[in-house]
Amino acid sequence: MEEKDIDYFLVPFGLAIMIGYHIWLVYTVIKHPRQTVMGLNAESRYQWVFSMMADPLKNGVLAVQTIRNNIMASTLLATTAITLSSILSVFVSSSSNTNHASQLVYGNKTRLLSSVKYFAILLCFLVAFLCNVQSIRYYAHVSFLVTVPTFIDQREPKNYVARNLNRGSLFWSIGLRAFYFSFPLFLWIFGPIPMFVCCIIMSFVLYFLDTTTSFTRNLHSYSMREKTEENDNEVV
């Protein structure tokens, strides 16, 4: 098999593995959220909002500090993404010239494939930057709402705050996935085989990180039950 044939076979197959895994992950998060870390974390954030807003005057500082930590994490990822995008853009522009550009327009397949590689990596970094900026936007909005005393006895505003917090976390997760996708695309520069191997290894690693065990689910259910009983006793 020639080198170009390996490239045309392994690269789409590796991307199909990564995309297929994330399609399965989205389906599992929607249908069986407790089997995934994202689903359990969403429930935990939901209960955290209710706990913090039960007494905003007492828990306001703790809530704002916790959200500030999330904003700092998103800011770090957004800064990293836009910095890498700028470096990659400068590198591509400095390594190309008018002759290469004309060859790309007129169908130089080698130059075209190289451009596709760099564009795919750049696209991942830009998606990561935009998602983290959206995450910062939601976290900043929640930092105002979570300390409003008028929401103490109202359930619907608490649900609204929890949904916004989970949306911010969702954008943060998507931005982090964009960084994950950039790894096999970066290894694609060195050849299709490293890229394909990276896709397989990363899919196994992400499966280990995204799924939960029965012990984790039982421990989470016990903690949630304890918290619910505590809130019910306080209401009584």
Rank of each mutant, 00 (worst) to 15 (best):
L123K: 05
D7V: 07
G20T: 08
V29W: 01
S173N: 15
S223G: 11
N231I: 02
L176H: 07
P12Y: 02
Q65P: 00
M1N: 07
T80M: 14
V61P: 00
L145D: 15
V92F: 08
I136E: 10
L187M: 13
R167H: 03
Y8P: 00
R217F: 01
W48Q: 12
L10V: 07
A120N: 11
A178M: 04
M18G: 09
I121S: 04
T212I: 06
Q65L: 11
N69Q: 13
M202T: 10
D210A: 07
W188P: 06
L76M: 11
K117Y: 09
I17P: 13
E230F: 12
F204M: 04
I23H: 02
F204K: 06
Y27C: 06
N166S: 08
E226N: 14
V142A: 06
R34W: 15
L84A: 11
E229D: 05
K158R: 10
L10T: 07
T110W: 03
M38K: 08
V148K: 13
I19H: 02
T212R: 11
N108C: 04
V92K: 06
I174A: 10
I87R: 09
G168L: 05
M52D: 00
W24A: 12
R163Y: 07
M38Q: 14
E234P: 00
S89C: 01
K31R: 14
Q35L: 14
E229C: 04
F9I: 15
W188A: 09
P184D: 12
L187D: 06
A42H: 03
S223Q: 14
W188D: 07
T80L: 14
L15G: 04
R34S: 14
N99K: 13
C198N: 09
L112N: 09
L219R: 11
A128F: 06
H32M: 12
L130R: 08
V90A: 02
T228N: 08
I71M: 15
I19C: 05
L145C: 05
T147M: 08
A63G: 06
P56H: 07
N233R: 13
I121W: 02
Y207S: 12
S114T: 13
F119K: 09
M1Q: 05
S143C: 10
L185V: 02
V105M: 12
S89W: 00
E226F: 11
P12F: 04
W24K: 15
A16V: 12
D153N: 15
T150H: 06
V148E: 15
L10E: 03
A162S: 12
H22Y: 05
I121E: 09
S203D: 09
G191L: 13
G14T: 04
R217M: 05
V116R: 09
Y21E: 12
F91T: 08
R45P: 01
A78L: 03
R111I: 10
S44L: 08
G39W: 06
N218P: 00
N70P: 01
V61E: 14
Y160E: 07
T98Y: 09
V37S: 13
S203H: 04
T98M: 02
F196Q: 04
L185R: 04
I152L: 06
S93V: 03
G175E: 08
F151Q: 04
L57S: 13
L10S: 07
R177Q: 11
G191H: 08
L113T: 14
H32Y: 12
M53E: 10
V148A: 09
M53H: 07
R34T: 15
G175R: 00
Y118G: 01
S44N: 08
E3T: 10
P192E: 07
I174H: 03
M195V: 01
